[in-house]
Amino acid sequence: MVENRPWLTILRHALLLSGVALVAFPIWIAFVASTHEGRALIAGVLPLLPGDQFVANYSQILGSGVEQAGAVPVSLMMANSLVMALAIAIGKIAISLLSAFAVVYFRFPFRMLCFWIIFMTLMLPVEVRILPTFEVVANLDMLNSYGGLSIPLIASATATFLFRQFFLTVPDELTEAARIDGASPFRFFLDILIPLSRTNIAAIFVIMFIYGWNQYLWPLLITTDPDYSTIVMGIQRMVNVADTQPYWQLVMATATLALLPPVVVVLVMQRLFVKGLVETEK
């Protein structure tokens, strides 16, 4: 018989609510700050309730931007970040699926050597190889382009490793059945492996989308045209202004909007994301 302890249930819920409040409070402060005038934020007392400048502040950053930060509308920067994040996430998944499929199901010379070479690239993040990568992108005339923003970041040893580990758990009977039915390797890949991998794909998509959305150094290096600025670059430019005080209400409004796409992706794919991380057969 399980002993009922109401006080223990109350304590657990109190701890959970405290954790939620600890995480949500800075986000609430950022939103509140985005609805006030600038002078209210530098007066020494930070307001805790929304102000009356919500429409004005958000209309300014979405429409005309901030002059000190290049006057690039936040809507354009968010669109650039969205294109970059989607291209990186989808590209990483597509290439990793194919590479893991080749390593697991094809017996070619130096197969495991190829896999370990891919895996060792984990020790070479973009910051380490940024100069040769920049030179290649520049020589291919891909500066100030969506291809230059996303293609150099598409390869992923992490996703290849995770898909390989999952493919190794697929029963050999499925492969034999597909071969007996006359399915080609690519048909087996499309009709069997990809549907079985949907939870892994969802989990990796969420992780890689957030990775692409938060990129700062690489877009800063290869973009000189303000029309290709990303949202993270825009926040940094709004904060680091010379000879004047940053418009903190506009900075907080931009930061609040920058939270929305990753939050939407996590909420939409939450069930598959959690399932892909905790399933026992993975």
Results as ranks from 00 to 15, higher is better:
176 E>R: 13
142 M>S: 15
224 T>L: 09
212 G>A: 08
99 S>D: 04
123 M>Q: 14
86 L>E: 07
141 D>T: 09
126 V>E: 14
121 T>E: 04
118 I>T: 09
112 M>R: 13
170 V>E: 04
202 A>Q: 02
134 F>Q: 05
179 R>N: 15
203 A>G: 08
137 V>M: 09
115 F>P: 01
185 P>K: 00
89 A>D: 02
196 L>Y: 05
100 A>E: 00
154 I>N: 05
157 A>V: 08
116 W>F: 15
152 P>H: 05
208 M>F: 12
159 A>G: 10
81 S>C: 09
88 I>T: 11
184 S>P: 06
92 K>S: 15
139 N>W: 12
214 N>Q: 13
84 M>C: 07
222 I>V: 13
89 A>C: 07
106 F>L: 08
211 Y>K: 10
192 I>Q: 05
147 G>N: 09
104 V>L: 05
136 V>S: 07
154 I>K: 06
118 I>R: 00
113 L>D: 14
103 V>L: 06
198 R>Y: 10
157 A>K: 04
215 Q>L: 09
130 I>T: 06
186 F>R: 05
186 F>G: 01
147 G>P: 05
177 A>S: 14
150 S>I: 03
192 I>P: 01
159 A>L: 06
149 L>P: 02
109 P>M: 13
181 D>W: 04
192 I>D: 04
137 V>E: 01
225 D>K: 12
208 M>R: 14
157 A>R: 05
159 A>W: 00
103 V>E: 00
196 L>M: 15
190 L>W: 14
168 L>W: 02
154 I>P: 04
146 Y>A: 07
141 D>A: 11
210 I>L: 07
138 A>C: 11
119 F>A: 15
177 A>N: 10
110 F>R: 13
170 V>Q: 03
213 W>M: 06
151 I>R: 09
174 L>E: 08
163 F>T: 04
195 P>D: 12
122 L>K: 11
113 L>C: 13
91 G>Q: 04
194 I>A: 06
215 Q>H: 05
112 M>Y: 11
177 A>K: 03
200 N>F: 09
158 T>G: 11
203 A>M: 12
137 V>K: 02
140 L>Y: 06
188 F>K: 00
107 R>N: 15
184 S>F: 02
173 E>L: 11
182 G>C: 09
197 S>G: 11
220 L>N: 13
116 W>C: 12
100 A>I: 00
105 Y>S: 03
217 L>S: 14
146 Y>G: 08
150 S>K: 02
164 R>D: 03
213 W>A: 03
144 N>C: 12
116 W>H: 14
225 D>F: 08
80 N>P: 04
89 A>H: 01
205 F>S: 02
130 I>K: 02
110 F>M: 15
146 Y>P: 06
189 F>T: 03
209 F>I: 06
168 L>E: 10
98 L>K: 07
125 P>S: 07
120 M>G: 15
119 F>D: 06
147 G>K: 04
141 D>I: 06
189 F>M: 07
91 G>T: 08
185 P>R: 00
108 F>T: 12
109 P>R: 11
103 V>I: 15
100 A>T: 01
97 L>H: 03
202 A>S: 10
121 T>S: 13
164 R>W: 01
182 G>S: 10
122 L>T: 13
131 L>R: 14
212 G>F: 00
200 N>G: 13
202 A>R: 01
133 T>S: 14
132 P>E: 08
133 T>C: 10
114 C>Y: 11
147 G>L: 10
87 A>E: 07
187 R>Q: 10
